[in-house]
Simulated assay, not measured.
Amino acid sequence: MTSMTKKKARRPQLGPMERARRQANYIRLLAFLVAAMILMAGLKLNLFPELYMLGVAGLLIYPMSAQGLLFLFDKQDRPTKTVHQLLMQADAMVIGLVCALLHFALVPAMVLLIIVHANSVSSGGLKPWLLNVLMTGVGALLMGWMLGFQVLSPEQTPVLLSVISMLGLGIYVGASSAFAHLQARYLKQAQELVGRQQKQAVDMSRKLAKYLPPQVWGSIFSGKRDAKLETRRKRLTVFFSDIKGFSAISEELPLTTLTKMLNTYLSEMTRIALRHGGTIDKFIGDAVMIFFGDPKSEGAQEDAYRCVLMAIEMQEQMKLLRQRWQREGIDHKLEIRIGINTGYATVGNFGTDSRMD
């Protein structure tokens, strides 16, 4: 016996758009089932010759063929939008043929016209609907010409045929309403999915932004700079700084105190650098590397001027930080050393396709 603990293979879940397309195919099938039902009722009431059974068979075969064509295109990853539009016009032409087969009986013909044209308006809009009207007329004229334009007057139309037609219309309207409700739900699910993905992307970009200079992050996410290996020569003003005697101090201070002090220092230096437009390249322990001139530049002279102003402000800020640390019990007289140079450098992305700097 087959083990009861064996799990059944799960079918892959369909996306909202795929489910909506399948629902649309079911609605097409239902529309032609209604048409076949009306024509079959006319045959049972002896209004039409037995040869019209071929028309009933065609109304049952056509939607199956249309669904098979859509499935074939979808399986081959070919665009199905054009096929959908062509099938919509073919639907209208077939309904025109059926109206002629019904000898243009008023109520049955009106029911079929309402079905096909309501579907075209809801699915395509005004332009496809006008084309649908044309194709319906072509189908009706073609079949009417072949049959000699026989017309069944309202007095000759049995009440039962009209009742069956209205019943078919009611079934179609109910199914279409349910389909519209499902489409709205699928659309809501798709919007919620897109919203979650956008939120995840925003959260991820905010996290990644903390590891990149704001200028570099902004140029990448705006599309101005691509993440590929490329370099170029530019004139930069480069700033280096470190804390004098920091290695010795790090051996004396407790880890928590050292971490708090270093984070405070780097936060203050970062704030000043960003205010002056500097691109923070990296932190190496207590050392800071900043450059001016890439990815944005105000000109070599202005870049150098801003860098010097930044360095002066950092020195002034360091005096305030020493006073603060002294109040917290850190008696070491911390000073920063700064080096600035202006010249041509090769800038860009270095490394490999999987890891760049």
Rank of each mutant, 00 (worst) to 15 (best):
E316I: 03
E335P: 07
K282P: 07
G329P: 10
V288F: 10
G285A: 06
Y344D: 10
M318I: 04
S297T: 09
I336R: 11
H332F: 14
T342Q: 06
T279N: 10
K319W: 01
T279P: 09
K282Q: 14
A300P: 15
E313D: 08
F292V: 01
Y344W: 08
M289I: 13
R327C: 00
E313G: 02
I312Q: 13
E298P: 08
M318Y: 08
W325H: 10
R306K: 15
L309C: 05
G293K: 01
G285K: 04
I284N: 11
A304G: 12
Y305I: 08
N341G: 05
K282E: 14
K319G: 02
I330V: 09
T279Y: 05
G343I: 01
G278W: 03
I312S: 12
I280K: 02
L320Q: 11
A300H: 05
P295S: 08
K282G: 08
Q323I: 05
V308R: 01
V288C: 10
E328D: 15
S297L: 08
Q323K: 12
A300G: 08
M310C: 14
V288T: 13
Q317F: 04
R322D: 04
Y305V: 09
E298Y: 11
K296N: 08
I284W: 03
L309R: 00
M310G: 07
G293D: 03
G343A: 06
M289K: 01
R337E: 10
I340R: 07
L320M: 07
L334N: 11
G277A: 09
H276P: 01
A287R: 06
G278R: 05
I340F: 05
Q323P: 05
I336D: 06
Y305D: 14
M310S: 08
I336N: 11
I340N: 04
I340T: 09
Q301T: 15
N341D: 09
L334I: 06
Q323Y: 07
D286W: 12
F292P: 02
A300C: 10
D303T: 03
R324S: 14
Y344F: 10
Q326E: 12
D303M: 00
D281G: 09
L320T: 11
S297E: 04
M310R: 04
M289A: 02
L309P: 00
E335R: 13
G278T: 05
M318P: 10
S297D: 02
V288H: 08
Y305E: 15
F283E: 05
R324C: 05
I280G: 01
F283G: 05
L309N: 02
E298S: 11
N341R: 06
I336H: 09
T279A: 10
G277F: 07
Q323M: 10
I290V: 15
I280Q: 03
R306C: 14
A287W: 02
V288M: 15
M314Y: 00
K319Y: 07
R337G: 09
F291G: 01
I280T: 03
G299H: 00
I284A: 12
E302V: 05
R306M: 14
S297I: 02
D286R: 13
K333R: 15
K296I: 05
